[in-house]
């Protein structure tokens, strides 16, 4: 019906989209989720939003934006939402790659495309997004210090070498995804994920990504106080 030369609507059948699922953990992001999904669906056909018991209309908005929506009956945490998304994607036998994407609009779809491309050419089994590989992202000094400390801790405990372990943008291939089992429901899941990938001996690379610190994501994002909670969850696991 419409001119789909530039717009990939739900009926477009370009092969690059059909083996990839984009997993978006969703919790009270009603303000931005429609735009985020529209942006993602411009490049990837298959989007699964895991609604983690949102109190606003996030789930309905995500569904009408064209995402499959899996709804947790109540809030479990971002780590639990990611694992639910992984389970969903794994139930699709044609899935080869999964991209994890944040719902608050801080990630760029171009970065995700580039990361899946690197999986596709066989460069690695996992591609981690890193905001510290170039100068495009500009976290505040406090945030930078916390993220550096977090990645230092993660590297130390998981025998991996990363520059940014707490980035929500990742691309993971199916064989690795099958081995991942996130048990940290809260925010410590990022380190747990890295640890499991490190233990699985999968090959990984980092991909420079641009984190857009909009006023919205800044207001919603992790406060510095929460980093203390993350640290505690990591140590007490």
């Amino acid at each position: 019906m419409n001119d789909s030369r530039t717009v990939h609507d739900s009926t477009s059948h370009d092969s690059r989209a059909h083996d990839t699922w984009v997993v978006i953990p969703l919790y009270n992001e009603g303000q931005v989720i429609t735009d985020v999904i529209a942006q993602v669906r411009g490049a990837f056909d298959q989007v699964v939003c895991v609604d983690d018991g949102s109190m606003d209309d996030s789930a309905e908005l995500a569904a009408s934006a064209g995402a499959r929506v899996v709804r947790h009956p109540f809030n479990l945490g971002q780590g639990a939402a990611l694992q639910t998304g992984f389970d969903y994607a794994l139930s699709d036998p044609t899935m080869k790659y999964v991209v994890t994407f944040d719902a608050d609009g801080q990630h760029q779809i171009a970065d995700a495309i580039g990361m899946v491309e690197r999986l596709r050419v066989g460069e690695a089994d996992v591609v981690f997004g890193s905001r510290f590989l170039d100068e495009r992202s500009s976290p505040t000094l406090g945030k930078k210090l916390v993220l550096r400390a977090a990645v230092g801790y993660t590297n130390m405990t998981t025998h991996t070498r990363l520059t940014d372990a707490h980035n929500g943008l990742r691309a993971i291939s199916r064989p690795v995804l099958k081995q991942i089992r996130i048990t940290q429901n809260g925010m410590a899941h990022a380190s747990e994920l890295v640890a499991q990938i490190g233990a699985s001996k999968a090959s990984y690379v980092e991909h420079p990504v641009h984190i857009l610190y909009s006023d919205y994501s800044k207001a919603k994002g992790q406060s510095l106080w929460n980093s203390i909670n993350i640290l505690a969850e990591l140590i007490l696991r």
Binding site: V50, R68, V69, V70, R71, H72, P73, F74, L76, A80, Q83, T84, D87, Y88, S91
Partner: peptide, 10 residues
């Protein structure tokens, strides 16, 4: 349990 419920529902 919650994950199973959510996945079965969809």
């Amino acid at each position: 349990l919650a994950r199973r419920l959510a996945l079965d529902e969809v």
